[in-house]
């Protein structure tokens, strides 16, 4: 039974697209067939993170308007055979796609693929409403930061009003040292407010930036902390019970280094 997952957050810049790319690649690495749909029309990024920009021929708007069958618009990933991207248009805007069109498209895709992951645009306007329309599951991405948590709360409310009750939380860009010092919200603070089940805690990792610029999601190498966290999330999406990883504490030498400003 295939699943349609929307990745959303309300606030921009918390890592929706990064999460979408990593989960997509992670599922493909497990041999699942996956389609990633970018619905951030006009501000598309997902193709860049996957390193597929130069292979795009048609886009989501072409498909929803019936100019080409969706098969023609899907871009196969260069490394993972079972991963496909359905990019959106960079010239049109969010009003070019409506919820009904996306539902029809997802129902088509369900027949052929195990997972359909929708990358939602920031905000709560039309683009958001379109992106969530077809989803069975919503992954709400947030950051340990008061404004991101506030927006996530609002988004969870909106999802509830749209009758989406399978909502999971991913907390991205955690900085363990800051949490330890009490300078950053910890998981308890976030759970207190949002009170939905959490399936991922991803540390802030420089490797993510490097990976984004290279067009190869951080999960591929698997050695970085963020990569491991995403691998765990993928496992949990597949129904496995995986405990949350402990973030390494800052060691003695690291502290010494910092004290001397190195």
């Amino acid at each position: 039974m295939s699943q349609v997952i929307v990745v959303t957050s309300g606030k921009g810049g918390v890592g929706k697209t990064t999460t979408t790319a990593n989960i997509g690649v992670g599922l493909a690495m497990r041999g699942k067939s996956v389609v990633l749909i970018d619905t951030d029309t006009g501000l598309r990024n997902l193709d860049l993170l996957l390193g597929l920009e130069n292979r795009i021929m048609y886009d989501l708007v072409d498909v929803t308007e019936g100019r080409v069958p969706y098969k023609k618009a899907l871009v196969r990933h260069k490394k993972f055979e079972t991963l496909f991207l359905l990019p959106t248009s960079q010239v049109k805007d969010k009003s070019s796609i409506n919820p009904a069109q996306l539902i029809v498209l997802c129902n088509e895709l369900r027949k052929e693929y195990d997972y359909i992951i929708i990358d939602c645009p920031a905000g709560i306007e039309q683009g958001f409403q379109t992106a969530i329309a077809a989803a069975d599951t919503a992954l709400v991405v947030t950051m340990p930061e008061i404004s991101a948590v506030r927006d996530a709360d609002k988004i969870i409310g909106e999802l509830g009003r749209a009758d989406k009750d399978n909502i999971k939380l991913i907390v991205n860009r955690i900085r363990p040292q800051m949490v330890e010092k009490g300078d950053m919200l910890d998981m308890n603070d976030i759970n207190d407010i949002l009170s939905i089940s959490c399936i991922g805690q991803v540390p802030d990792d420089e490797m993510v930036v490097t990976a984004t610029n290279k067009g190869e999601p951080v999960i591929v190498s698997g050695s970085s902390l963020a990569g491991k966290a995403y691998t765990n999330i993928v496992g949990r999406i597949c129904g496995e019970e995986i405990p949350f990883m402990e973030f390494p504490k800052e060691g003695f030498f690291a502290r010494l280094k910092r004290a001397f400003g190195m």
Binding site: D153, K154, S195
Partner: peptide, 8 residues
């Protein structure tokens, strides 16, 4: 009978 979230 539920949590009242931001914006409501």
């Amino acid at each position: 009978n539920r949590t009242v979230r931001g914006g409501e």
